[in-house]
Structure formats: structure tokens, C-alpha cells
Design a protein around this nucleic acid. Structure first.
Lengths: 174, 174
DNA sequence: GCTGCCATGTAAGATGTTACATGATTGT
DNA sequence: ACAATCATGTAACATCTTACATGGCAGC
């Protein structure tokens, strides 16, 4: 599962420009995948070269022109192959937990401020995710896609709770 | 936060060989960072070249010889710099959620089997994490390090619950 | 003889990040 | 003027993954 597969999957749903793809990444896939322009455009070029997608130049009146990509039959086949491949294990990398792990090096107040910062960060993430969920619900979403949101919301809520409990426990040790 | 910082952090705690570092990655950091030999050994070589760590060849009797690394003053300084740098946002990548998102392509049974597989996967991960937590508790662990485990355990438990609920809901739709 | 654990490494390639670079249009 | 949004891209670099390659020692 790489950027390539995700882009192909999106174009398998409907035609899009690189800019639009970035937008879907931000509003719908952000919790479990992130893509940047520096990644999306090179992927589009590569997929086109391989004949998996096709470019159409679209002239616009009120906005700058754009390149809209559509998936080819070859691309559809390739995406199906991905969908039927073995699911790879998720990856998670946390700088915050790293600091918790190596915390003995720092003083207690610094550590507590790290935790408070992380709680705030997660609260922000949660409200963004909730907003995107609500916005998308109105545009049609199937029960499986809904799971991706439930999953993310449960994650943030449960970690906010854990971190608050940790703070309380640390307070009790004074 | 990269492999380099983690390796430096571990050697900041005590001297270790590449093989031992891998073991700590597996048993203590696995939830929020993963390292492979193909990553660890090149990092050790690089850090040594930069003068941040030092190699000692240790001849062993009952086991193959090994290279034990220790951190230098320069390395300690470098690690402190990392600890005081701004925490970067966590990253999460999930192939499972990807399939949930693009699920309309597949038939319902296949999707349900993906969910069941993922629940099993998470149950296994949870029990491994719990085992490592218990094993480590007996070897001394501070309250901040404990947070890294609480965080992971909460994650797995809450996602297992979400996925089970999703399954029930899907059953109700028959 | 085989398996499992201990132990170290390389080389090639894929992948992704960061920073830079450009420019139109719309609204304030 | 200026900021925001729309729109596309490159080049250099850092990083990591995968696969390969080797070999000692212990116990069955």
C-alpha cells in the first residue's frame, strides 16, 4: 500500500486533478494516509507513463487551467490486483511517545507540558475529523467508509482519556 | 524523530550492540517505532563516523563476538538537542482502512473477512504488548515510560471494540 | 544433520520529504 | 496592495525497505 495505490483508487472512483486529489487526501484520508503535492504530482506522471491513467488538459474560465486524470482499463486491472493482495500491517510512528520513553532526561515540568500539548493536538485532530465526517455524510458514504471515521474518532477519544488519566496520576505523586 | 535519534537515545541509557538494540525495538518500542537490522547497522556506522558513538569489539566465549557501542559526549549533546526540539506530529498508515475506504469494489463477504482478520491481528498485538509490559514492569520502568504502554493498550482495546461494533451493525443489515 | 538463536553486515532500489519556483484569479 | 485559493511542477536529498550474504554456537 503506497501512494500509487491510493491515487489509483481515487481515480478509480472518478476523474480528478492533482489538486483535487490532494483535497481528498486532506479531508477524507488524512487519518490513515498522508500525501503531499511533492508526492502526488510525481506519482501522476509515473502512472501516466505506465499507461495506468490518462491526462486531459482542461481549460477553465474563472480558474487556472488544470490537468484532469482518468483511469485506464490497465489501471483498473492494476488496482484490482492491489485490492486482492494481502493486507500489510499498519505503521505508527510517534515522536510524542518517544519523548515519554526517554523522559528521564528531562525535568518533570517539561514532560507534563509535553502531555498537555499532545492532549491539545489530539483535541484539534478530533474536531477536524468530526467536521470532515459530518461534511462527508451529507455527500454519501457507505458503511465501510464510515468505519474509517469511527476508527479515527475512537482513537482520538481514547487517547485523550488515557493522557488525562496519566496527568491526574502524575499530580497525585506530588 | 528518526532512527538515528532512537538509537542515540538507547545508547544514552546504556551500552548496547546492534543486535540488542533490535531486541529493545521489538519488545519496548515496537508500538510507536520500528527498526530493522537493515536500518540499525547503517545508522550505527554513520553515528560512529560522526563521532557520536564509539565501538568496542567484545570477544565472547559461548556466543559469537559482538560490537558494543557507547555514546560519546558529543552524542549526548546531540541527543539533548533532539529532546529539546519541537515534537513532530505522529504518522499513521493503515492498509486495512484503505480497503475499508475503497470497499465498494469488493463483495460484502470479502469486506467482512477483512474486518475479522483485522480484529484477530489486533488481539494478537494487544496480547504481545501486554506481555512485554508485564515483563518490563519487573525490570523497572518510570511513570512516563508506562504511558507508552497505556497508550498502546488503550488503542488496541478501543479499536477491537469499534470493529466488533461495526460487524454487528453490518449483520443487522442483512 | 537440523533448527534456532546470536551476530553483523551490504547493495540496490523504492519511496517520500523539503524546499524551491511559478503563476492565475478572486475578494477585501 | 494583499491574502487566499486554485493550480502545477522539479530537484536534491534523506530515509527506509528488501533481499541477499555469512557464520558461530548450542541443543536435540
Amino acid at each position: 500500500m503506497q501512494g500509487k495505490d491510493v491515487v489509483l483508487g481515487l481515480l478509480n472512483q472518478r476523474d480528478m486533478s492533482g489538486y483535487e486529489i490532494k483535497d481528498v487526501f486532506e479531508t477524507q484520508l488524512k487519518f490513515f494516509f498522508d500525501g503531499t503535492f511533492g508526492m502526488i504530482y510525481p506519482i501522476l506522471r509515473k502512472l501516466e507513463k505506465e499507461g495506468l491513467i490518462q491526462k486531459k488538459h482542461v481549460v477553465q474560465d474563472l480558474k487556472p487551467n488544470k490537468n484532469v486524470y482518468s483511469i485506464t482499463d490497465l489501471g483498473k486491472k492494476e488496482f484490482k490486483t492491489y485490492l486482492n493482495s494481502k493486507t500489510v500491517e499498519e505503521t505508527f510512528k510517534s515522536d510524542f511517545l518517544m519523548r515519554m520513553y526517554f523522559g528521564q532526561e528531562l525535568d518533570r515540568d517539561k514532560m507534563i507540558s509535553f502531555i498537555k500539548q499532545e492532549i491539545e493536538r489530539k483535541k484539534t485532530n478530533l474536531s477536524e475529523l468530526t467536521d470532515n465526517y459530518e461534511r462527508w455524510t451529507n455527500n454519501g458514504m457507505n458503511s465501510f467508509q464510515e468505519i474509517t471515521f469511527m476508527y479515527g474518532i475512537a482513537y482520538y477519544k481514547s487517547e485523550i482519556k488515557v493522557l488525562n488519566e496519566a496527568l491526574e496520576k502524575l499530580d497525585g505523586q506530588d
